[in-house]
């Protein structure tokens, strides 16, 4: 039986993601945990998170989880979600500049104030709700079976800006394109919430639970 660890570091509600993983594959063993041994013994790792980057990095430091996350990210199929995607980059503008894990080159930026949509109406921040996602490479194993331009559910005020366009696995528009997903080797991360994105989200999670990437180590 395969297993997946959802890293619990005190940033947000992980029950939704655990329930969605279980729903995506009823045979998989889902653990919501901060225990390094459990995380490193799992076949796959999900790195979720909501909230602010400074709190995220502080909570990781308090629990001494950074080495565990780095090891899991080097060795296992690894899925970052929302803040868990942003934390993979080098630095975030949030909280006056916060260093993050640096596993993907690039920065995390805030949506500029005063943005307007095509009708000229001001855009709200956070970017909250369902938006279409354009896959860079529809043949990536995590997009398999998901129709092009599917809708996914987003809630965020900051977005990742990877330095290397090759790391961008998908984009969405608000109002211009931003990275909705990044991928590099065994790392995959999404800005949206697959656990709240109905059929498309569940399929992405099911794809992740079957994914056998070549690891970078």
């Amino acid at each position: 039986m395969s297993s997946v660890a959802v890293i619990d570091y005190g940033m947000g509600n992980l029950h939704s993601i655990a329930k969605a993983l279980q729903h995506a594959d009823e045979r998989v063993e889902v653990a919501v945990t901060s225990d390094p041994d459990t995380i490193l013994a799992s076949d796959r790792v999900v790195f979720p998170g909501v909230g602010a980057m400074r709190d995220c990095m502080a909570h990781i430091a308090e629990r001494d989880l950074e080495p565990v996350i780095r090891r899991a990210a080097a060795e296992k199929p690894f899925l970052g979600i929302c803040l868990g995607m942003q934390a993979l980059l080098e630095e975030s503008e949030e909280n006056g500049g916060t260093r993050s894990l640096g596993l993907i080159p690039g920065r995390v930026q805030r949506f500029a104030p005063g943005l307007a949509d095509a009708r000229g109406e001001p855009l709200k921040i956070p970017h909250m709700g369902w938006n279409r996602v354009h896959f860079s490479d529809p043949s990536h194993p995590l997009w398999v079976g998901i129709p092009a331009e599917s809708w996914f559910y987003f809630v965020h005020s900051y977005y990742a800006a990877p330095a290397d366009p090759a790391d961008i696995a998908a984009t969405s528009d608000y109002p211009g394109p931003f990275a909705a997903a990044v991928a590099r080797d065994n790392l995959f991360a999404v800005q949206f919430h697959p656990e709240k994105s109905q059929a498309a989200g569940l399929r992405l999670l099911a794809n992740f639970l079957r994914w056998e990437p070549r690891t970078s180590s």
Partner: peptide, 8 residues
């Protein structure tokens, strides 16, 4: 573009 939402 972001969709407008319907919430029952």
């Amino acid at each position: 573009m972001l969709a407008k939402r319907i919430i029952p």
